[in-house]
Design a binder for these strands. Structure first.
Length: 584
RNA sequence: GGUGGCGUAGUUCAGUUGGUUAGAAUAUCGGCCUGUCACGCCGAGGGUCGCGAGUUCGAGUCUCGUCGUCACCGCCA
């Protein structure tokens, strides 16, 4: 037996017990005649003491010890003469009778402690060392705890956990596929699933009724802090349900997870139509921890001779509470901030509603105090507030206002950690027009059902058709999304037609699904949560990398194992592949 | 595909208008130290300033290219 206890469990009640511990050397404090060693494992740190009473053999071993050596120590638990109140094992220490080096360690490239000196790049390369750090491991423990809670809930609700294939078929819709060549079928390829979408629908046709899976999905697109090429979804599908049934089931799951893992009670989730989210928050994933809603003030501001507003399609504003005291410099910085290419506003108009009820704006030349008072009323601004106005193309301006709203909230400390405000965004548009290819694309995916009352618009105004599609948004993060599916092969054919598929193309790509629908498909609907984002939200982190044991970097590389990497000529030949030089 | 930040000791960083031998902290190694727990004190070693080209009498510093990395835009049903 390597150990009788872990390094985190011994307490005063264990005093005088003989124990055996194993772990990593966190630090050696050599005081001359006596030496302290902090021994660390997953569970904590326990102090070992070597002093005048310790045998010579042990002392000889001591000289070889360095940080991160794996050792085994035998001895007796004793009370410390000077206790450490900062750690759970701080009342006791181990009077060492024997030390065995199980495995020596090279000097680690960074210190294994909470406030490590290692940068991101280095820690990623030595991820197995970074994972020894308590704060990193803690994130993965949270992840495991959440997965467990989710499985518990869904099992109790009668969902069947079912695995679906990873080697599937490439389809033209949606994200780029990761592609896998087939040796046995020369010249043909599998694709890795972007999600198990069609399989879960086939499981519904198979009568599984309630399916779920915590499953890896793959998308070959450029990455972000919250996007990895392989990521994990909590994937679900249900039969004989309407949208409300799915929302209620997964609102329940979300509340259960909050309660079980964080012991947080969240209120019932409001439902907000997509159109309202865009108009009031400038985003399809609004952060509703705070208000600062966007107001359309186009009608209020036009016709006073200010050409910028008069010629704009849309003029919108937000009201930043208590910011009337912003300095010229701060306002200039905000102006530059909205003019950055990523935001893309042309400029920023401000109105200070001063404490003495007077107004000071960047457009005083065009608007009287009476005019500005009207703006203030429209925005429900009070003395001391600052009104920020953007104008231009409606879609772009709303987006910019949405970003400005988040930035102001950040400056004002309104995006509070530990406060969770989930909501359902519903009634998404079914289709999205793409300027480049001049065709409609499914906003969610091609199996999403239109709202029954909007089906008649499919031919005349496809862009106005709303879908029975929904997103779960928490604190401005899209946690999950799903839809009611089409289960009628005729409506499905119609969808493919609107999306520009010929019947032959539709048959080749999705024939198996439409075929399946011919044999009695139940009405069904589903949803998928981005598990990595869900965990990072719980952990209070912006990057999902910190909740993944072995993540990829910004460029989609694993810097630890150095992948992707070239393969041999032999492998290529076996797969009937030849490489072509990439043009510079 | 695009925009921007960063790249200097094992590590995290500083390095002035371009100017003598590139610094600090920490880590490492050696010495001293009987109650430390970020131990303390003394000392030592440690640098292709990412790489390449250019400007200059002179480049860590300026310019261009390139590689790496991070953030964002496009993209991600």
């Amino acid at each position: 037996m390597y150990r009788t206890h872990t390094c985190g469990e011994l307490r005063a009640k264990n005093i005088n017990q003989p124990v055996k511990l194993a772990g990593w050397v966190q630090r050696v404090r050599d005081l001359g005649a006596m030496t302290f060693i902090d021994l660390r494992d997953r569970y904590g740190v326990t102090q070992l003491v070597i002093d005048e009473n310790t045998s010579k053999d042990v002392k000889a071993n001591l000289e070889k010890l360095g940080r991160e050596f794996v050792i085994q120590a035998e001895g007796k638990v004793r009370e410390r003469s000077s206790k450490n109140k900062n750690i759970p094992t701080g009342e006791i220490e181990i009077e060492v009778a024997g030390i065995k080096i199980l495995s020596p360690s090279a000097v680690p490239p960074f210190t294994i402690q909470e406030d490590t000196d290692g940068g991101d790049e280095l820690r990623m390369k030595y991820r197995y060392l970074d994972l020894r750090r308590q704060n990193v491991r803690k994130n993965l423990e949270l992840r495991a705890k959440m997965a467990h809670a989710i499985r518990t809930y869904l099992n109790e609700e009668g969902f069947i956990e079912t695995e679906t294939p990873v080697l599937i078929k490439s389809t033209p819709e949606g994200a780029r596929d990761f592609v896998v060549p087939s040796r046995m079928n020369s010249g043909e390829f599998f694709a890795l699933p972007q999600s198990p979408q069609v399989f879960k629908q086939l499981l519904m046709v198979a009568g599984f009724d309630k399916y779920f899976q915590i499953v890896k999905c793959f998308r070959d697109e450029d990455l972000r802090a919250d996007r990895q090429p392989e990521f994990t979804q909590i994937d679900c599908e249900m039969s004989f349900v309407e949208q409300e049934d799915v929302l209620n089931a997964f609102e329940g799951l979300t509340k259960f997870t909050f309660k079980n893992v964080l012991n947080v009670e969240v209120e019932d989730f409001p439902r907000m139509p997509y159109s309202e989210a865009i108009e009031k928050y400038g985003s399809d994933k609004p952060d509703i921890r705070f208000d600062m809603l966007i107001s359309d003030i186009s009608e209020t501001v036009k016709g006073k001779g200010f050409n910028v507003f008069d010629s704009a399609e849309y003029v919108g504003a937000i009201c930043a509470k208590g910011c009337a005291g912003y300095s010229r410099k701060q306002l200039d910085e905000l102006t530059n901030w909205v003019k950055r290419p990523q935001i893309g506003a042309k400029g920023l108009v401000y109105v200070k509603y001063n404490e003495d009820r007077s107004f000071k704006s960047s457009v005083d030349k065009f608007y009287s105090a009476e005019d500005l008072k009207q703006w203030a009323e429209k925005l429900d601004a009070k003395p001391g507030d600052l009104i920020l106005v953007l104008s231009g193309d409606k879609t772009k301006t709303l987006h910019a206002l949405g970003e400005l709203r988040l930035e102001m909230a950040k400056q004002l400390g309104l995006r509070k950690q530990g406060v969770f405000k989930p909501l359902w965004v519903v009634d998404f548009p079914l289709l999205e027009w793409d300027e480049e290819t001049e065709r409609f694309y499914a906003m969610h995916h091609p199996f999403t059902a239109p709202k029954p009352e909007d089906i008649k618009l499919l031919d005349s105004n496809p862009g106005d058709v709303r879908a029975n599609a929904y997103d779960l948004v928490i604190n401005g993060v899209e946690i999950g999304g799903g839809s009611v599916r089409i289960y009628d092969s005729e409506l499905q054919s119609k969808m493919f037609k609107v999306l520009g598929f010929t019947p032959e193309q539709a048959e080749a790509q999705f024939g198996f699904l439409m075929n399946a629908f011919k044999y009695g498909a139940p009405p069904h609907a589903g949803i998928a949560f981005g598990f990595d984002r869900f965990v990072s939200l719980f952990a209070g982190l912006d990057s999902i990398r910190d909740v993944i044991a072995f993540p990829k970097n910004n460029a989609g590389r694993d810097v630890m194992i150095d992948s992707p990497s070239p393969v041999s000529e032999e492998q290529l030949t076996e797969l009937s592949l030849r490489l072509i030089e990439k043009k510079k």
